[in-house]
Computed example of a mutant assay.
Amino acid sequence: MDQHNKINYLEIPVKNLAQTKTFFSRAFGWDFTDYGPEYSCFNQAGIAGGFYLSPHSFELNRGSVLIVIYSDDLLESITGVEAAGGTITEPVFSFPGGRRFHFKDPNGNEFGVWSQ
């Protein structure tokens, strides 16, 4: 639902669109709508957005925003991320409000996954 003055859409740079779609489909069950060979919208992700071809990646240590995905089961999510080709960069740790881990997708982009 579009709401005035609310964050509505994310665009994420990726080096390999096909590999990215395979990774997020396997790890998190997302599906995609392609808009040409260089852009694909993700679905079932909790927020609208898309992946676009770019030679760049993002990481926290370079000042990037952290995109965080919610999970009902962190261990299941870790297994899914690793089985799909991601790399755990921060093992599960506690923070006020829950627990989370960080990972890099096959493009080198860093994400978090959290649970209560």
Rank of each mutant, 00 (worst) to 15 (best):
L74M: 05
Q116M: 11
K21L: 12
V81H: 01
L60V: 13
F58Y: 11
K104A: 15
Q3V: 06
F93M: 10
N8V: 02
Y35S: 13
N107C: 15
L10Y: 10
A48V: 00
L17R: 06
Y52E: 05
G63K: 12
W30S: 01
A45N: 03
G86W: 07
T33N: 11
M1W: 09
E110M: 06
D105R: 01
G85P: 02
E38D: 13
S77G: 11
T33V: 15
L17Q: 03
T33Y: 12
D2C: 03
G50L: 13
A45C: 09
P106H: 05
E82Q: 13
G86P: 10
H56V: 02
Y35F: 15
G85V: 05
W114E: 12
S77M: 01
G50H: 07
F23V: 04
N8W: 00
H102Y: 13
F28D: 02
G80I: 05
V68W: 08
A27T: 01
N61E: 14
T20A: 13
L74C: 09
K15P: 08
S77C: 09
D31W: 05
F42M: 11
R62L: 10
S71R: 00
E76S: 12
N43M: 09
L53H: 04
S64M: 09
Q44H: 11
L74Y: 11
I12T: 06
A27L: 02
H56L: 14
N5L: 14
P91D: 14
F28G: 03
W114P: 01
N109L: 02
H4R: 15
N43W: 00
N8K: 07
K15L: 14
G112D: 01
K15T: 06
F24G: 08
D72A: 06
I7A: 04
I47V: 10
I88R: 04
L60I: 08
F95C: 08
G63D: 06
L60A: 07
G63E: 11
H4C: 10
H102E: 10
E59Q: 15
F24M: 04
K104L: 14
Y70Q: 10
W30N: 02
F95V: 07
S71Q: 00
L75S: 15
P106F: 03
E38R: 04
K15F: 07
G85L: 06
A83Y: 03
S115D: 13
I7V: 08
F111D: 03
D31E: 13
D31T: 07
S40L: 05
S25G: 15
Y9F: 15
L66K: 03
D34R: 04
W30R: 01
G36C: 08
S57P: 01
Y52A: 07
P55G: 14
L10K: 00
E90I: 04
D105C: 03
V14T: 09
H102C: 14
S77L: 12
M1C: 15
P13K: 11
G86Q: 09
D105V: 05
T33E: 13
I69M: 12
C41E: 12
N109T: 01
D72K: 09
G49T: 02
Y70N: 09
M1A: 14
L60Q: 04
V92Q: 08
S25F: 06
Y52R: 02
R100Y: 14
G80N: 10
